[in-house]
Amino acid sequence: MNANPYLPVRAKILEVVRQTEQIATFQIESPGLNPVPGQFLEVSIPKVGECPLSISDFDSDYIELTVRKVGKVTGALNALRKGDHLFIRGPYGNGFPLEKLAGRHVVMVLGGIGLVPVKSIVNRYYQNGGVKRLDLLVGFRTPREVIFQEELARWQEKFNVVITVDQGEPDWPGRVGLVSELVKEVAGQERAVAIVVGPPAMIRAAAEELLKSRVAKEDIWVSLERRMSCGIGKCGHCKISDQYVCLDGPVFNYRQVEKLVD
């Protein structure tokens, strides 16, 4: 019998960085996990429960999770401090097809915590290069919800980073409006490849804009979010059409996403 995939391992929290009132980043020790950017972990707290969380960054000895407090488990997680422990299993899912991005003009259209699953990719391009050009379009609801401020500032040295908010505030120096509206400013001149992560309505709007800017469907990669329990293709929650988001995704090509309806 194979090892029991439902059994989690204990991992210590090495560092906690508060991003916003609702969102925090947890650096935890990695028990030799070697994730692909875009994969996720099933994270649990005994006596509370388990939920799937996207990996925001990683190295050989740590994994970073960036979590918004929305429910029971993420609420309890938000209260944890450096030195506390949580339980993890995974990594699960397919991750982004980085080979398709290599040497290309990459446009990322991200909504809020949609920035989380691509952070490690941007960091690697920042450190080692690897793409011809990177346009990072990030939308947040309000200025107070901007996460990874340090990283975004650093990335601006090398990439075109555009931050927009749905609702501005008097001292907000940046753009106001939907992130999908920014697509036409950056895509279109050359054949770009795109990554889209965010809420469903944003994904739809962003994909429409990308297609208008003549980005090919097969060059658009979308990370989908679904309610999940098991993470290993058994529990049925994340099933859309004949695909399990946990196994076959969460990253899908737009040609597939088009057909994934429920």
């Binding site: 439902y6 649990s44 005994p46 509370v48 388990e50 329990s229 058994k234 529990c235 049925g236």
Partner: peptide, 16 residues
């Protein structure tokens, strides 16, 4: 065959 996973606990002990 669909299922959900929850924790049930009392005091120091619990089960997934």
């Amino acid at each position: 065959h669909c299922f959900d996973i929850v924790d049930e606990a009392a005091g120091k002990e619990g089960c997934r």
